[in-house]
């Protein structure tokens, strides 16, 4: 009896989560913005990598930068304080709306970091090795 309840509840939870699966993603990628999968005129999240050299700072903390998923690119405009990890090549998640010209007007910018942890010297050494290889 108890076993049946456990199995039943587990299956129900599993199915509910499967249904949620599509909606639980935190953000859309630039490709999904370009191909129209992401809805416009509503607040969404956009995630991608900051393209090197694309950061342009304007007046009053205003900044524009380009996000890429290595396939498509979207320009993001934001006004406010950026997180400490915001830099070129960094993974970023922004929240905001698409305007009519395809620019993303961000209200919030969050930085994503990866699961690699190492001292700065090791990173420098790795970069040197990679530079030699290329």
């Amino acid at each position: 009896m108890v076993g049946l309840i456990v199995v039943g509840c587990t299956i129900a939870t599993g199915l509910a989560l499967l249904a949620l699966r599509e909606n639980i993603n935190l953000f859309f990628s630039p490709s999904q913005i370009v191909d129209g999968t992401a809805p416009s005129n509503t607040t969404i999240r956009l995630g991608g990598m900051v393209v090197s050299g694309s950061i342009q700072r304007g007046e009053n903390l205003g900044v524009t930068f380009v996000l890429t998923d290595l396939a498509e690119q979207v320009t993001v405009a934001y006004e406010g304080i950026l997180p400490d990890l915001f830099r070129e090549g960094q993974g970023i998640v922004t929240q905001g709306k698409l305007d009519s010209s395809g620019r993303f007007l961000a209200q919030q910018v969050l930085a994503k970091h990866d699961e690699t942890y190492m001292p700065p010297e090791v990173n420098d050494a790795l970069r040197k090795v990679m530079a030699v290889d290329q």
């Binding site: 639980i24 997180p83 400490d84 990890l85 915001f86 919030q108 969050l110 970091h113």
Partner: peptide, 14 residues
């Protein structure tokens, strides 16, 4: 300090 938010409704945190 790192992400720029105390809380986000992402799958891991939720």
């Amino acid at each position: 300090p790192m992400w720029g938010a105390w809380w986000v409704w992402d799958a891991r945190l939720t």
